[in-house]
Design a protein around this nucleic acid. Structure first.
Length: 222
DNA sequence: CTCCAGGGGGCCA
DNA sequence: TGGCCCCATGGA
């Protein structure tokens, strides 16, 4: 069922999310590693470190862990006393150190980690949890972050607050690998173009974008 | 100097 | 539910 005014498909019957995905893919041709350190302990750790934090600061913290010889969850536990100092560049370091230790204990204790295991830990909301499920465990959960929410509101002109609806919308009919890339493309797009103060004059999606249609005078100034 | 970054929890109405 | 505050560093 389509809600009134909501573009689910175009005239060729393609899903709207796939149209957006393909446009972004064309525009950002250069392939990047969207979430580095996949399949290593650094990936789930960086999911915590990046909470409300600039990625550059996350990289500094990860480099500190590498230089300290910490590369597994066992290493994390064995160096728990040094953790706060090492991740300091990523900010909120007292809270994040606790979260990383809890994460390490879970990974060591449990083999088949499920969504509720992560969600039940303090500091693990849906975004953090789903990024770990998607990028570390290859499970089909589309990650909805603040970038995606802003992107969606601009694109459709509607503020959707329901995480599950957004995840279903953007992840529809996509494979796990496509979900990874699409999420990465949205992040890339929001960092470069669909910023807080958007650069619509260099956006590949203007023909599809509600915000652009309703802010033409603003955008013509360049 | 100010603002904000790939969140989440606690508290309060 | 919805709004606000807190956590903290570092770059623009």
């Amino acid at each position: 069922m389509e809600k009134a005014g909501r573009k689910e498909k175009n005239e060729n019957g393609e899903n709207f999310n796939i149209i957006i995905y393909n446009e972004l893919k064309k525009f950002y041709k250069e392939k990047k590693q969207w979430w580095p350190w996949e399949k290593t302990a650094y990936m789930p750790i960086s999911a915590i470190l990046t909470q409300a934090t600039n990625w550059r600061n996350v990289e500094k913290a990860i480099n500190n862990l590498k230089n300290a010889g910490i590369k597994t969850f066992e290493d994390v536990i064995n160096n728990a006393d040094k953790l706060e100092e090492l991740i300091k560049p990523a900010g909120f370091y007292r809270k994040k150190a606790k979260r990383i230790i809890a994460l390490a204990n879970l990974f060591i204790k449990k083999k088949n980690i499920e969504r509720d295991d992560l969600l039940s830990l303090n500091g693990f909301g849906k975004e953090t949890t789903d990024s770990i499920l998607l990028y570390h465990f290859d499970k089909p959960y589309f990650v909805i972050d603040n970038y995606t929410k802003r992107f969606h509101e601009r694109l459709t002109g509607k503020k959707e607050q329901c995480y599950e609806k957004l995840a279903a919308f953007y992840g529809k009919s996509l494979t796990v690998e496509e979900m990874k890339e699409f999420h990465g493309l949205i992040v890339e797009h929001c960092k470069n173009t669909c910023k807080k103060d958007p650069l619509c004059n260099k956006c590949p999606l203007i023909n599809l974008c509600f915000y652009y249609k309703n802010h033409e005078t603003r955008n013509q100034k360049g």
